[in-house]
């Protein structure tokens, strides 16, 4: 037992575009999906993560390492999460929400969805449609009626710059 704690176990994760990543088991098990595999003894070789690409997985592993290095201090963890997400663009955040959901990491899921909400807050309806790939299924009359009914919510909306 003493030997095990002396040499931390390392897991190898594989992204869907075949990139390999080494990560300490203690950090990787922040993902309930990975923890279940470890507990079921399926984590001996390479763990394939079919729904996450290399770029996103690299980001998630940075987060895993960073957050697990912080002792049980919720304030510090929160400020780490804020800083970690502060420079991410919308596309990266969207990828991370999908990854966090697939990996079952509720703390990351919460933080990323809150960040996306913050990015969206002052955006236009058109921006949201483009970024979320949503087809407008209103007729022009219906759309005008919905907008007219909630006119006040269109004050202070940013002009679209697609940032």
């Amino acid at each position: 037992m003493a030997a095990e704690t002396g040499t931390p176990t390392t897991l190898t994760l594989k992204s869907n575009d075949d990139e390999l990543f080494s990560v300490a088991e203690s950090a990787a098990i922040l993902s309930v999906t990975i923890r279940n595999m470890v507990e079921d003894g399926c984590a001996g070789g390479v763990i394939p993560l079919d729904n996450v690409d290399g770029k996103t997985l690299a980001s998630v592993i940075t987060y895993m390492n960073g957050i697990s290095a912080i002792p049980a201090d919720e304030e510090k963890k929160k400020s780490y999460r804020d800083k970690f997400l502060s420079d991410k663009d919308f596309e990266t955040l969207a990828d991370m929400v999908l990854a966090a959901n697939y990996l079952n990491m509720s703390c990351l899921m919460d933080a990323v969805s809150a960040k996306i909400a913050q990015v969206m807050e002052k955006k236009s309806v058109g921006w949201v449609r483009r970024k979320f790939g949503i087809e407008n299924d209103y007729t022009p009359e219906e759309e005008a009626a919905v907008k007219e009914e909630h006119k006040w919510t269109f004050e202070g909306v940013e002009t679209d710059d697609d940032n």
Partner: peptide, 15 residues
Amino acid sequence: KLPVKSLIRFAAVSK
């Protein structure tokens, strides 16, 4: 997680 004002505005995104 959106403020109410944004949530109501985005009702115009789709049904």
